[in-house]
Amino acid sequence: MMDVAAAVLVVAGAALAALSGIGQVRFADLFTRMHIATKPATLGLLLVAAGASLRIDSAGAATLLFLTVVLQFATGPVSAHLVGRAAHRHGDWDRRNAAVDQLAEVDEL
């Protein structure tokens, strides 16, 4: 039972990972790709970690996985923010399709 749950979790996490990868290929705009990259990968890791913690019963496994997930949640968005900021500043994204760009307005002041 536990094993089945674990397998499901892991496969689901892996599926999310696959998803984020496919997204990388499919989308043309940097920020869109970043959306796709950040979220599924984080949740995917969470799911896989959950699955793993169900399977591995060695000392401290679950706790290490917990720490992994916490750190990932704390740092993943920050990375995205920094890259996003740099890319925005650098003009790497598809600006023409944007409806509004209030950051650009601020920077131009």
């Binding site: 920020f31 970043m34 959306h35 950040t38 993943g76 968005p77 923010h81 996003g84 925005h88 601020v106």
Partner: peptide
């Protein structure tokens, strides 16, 4: 908040000033 925004649907924090 900024982190949570990034992890919720359709939004991504780019900067905070």
């Amino acid at each position: 908040v900024a982190n949570a925004i990034t992890l919720t649907p359709g939004t991504l924090t780019i900067d905070a000033r």
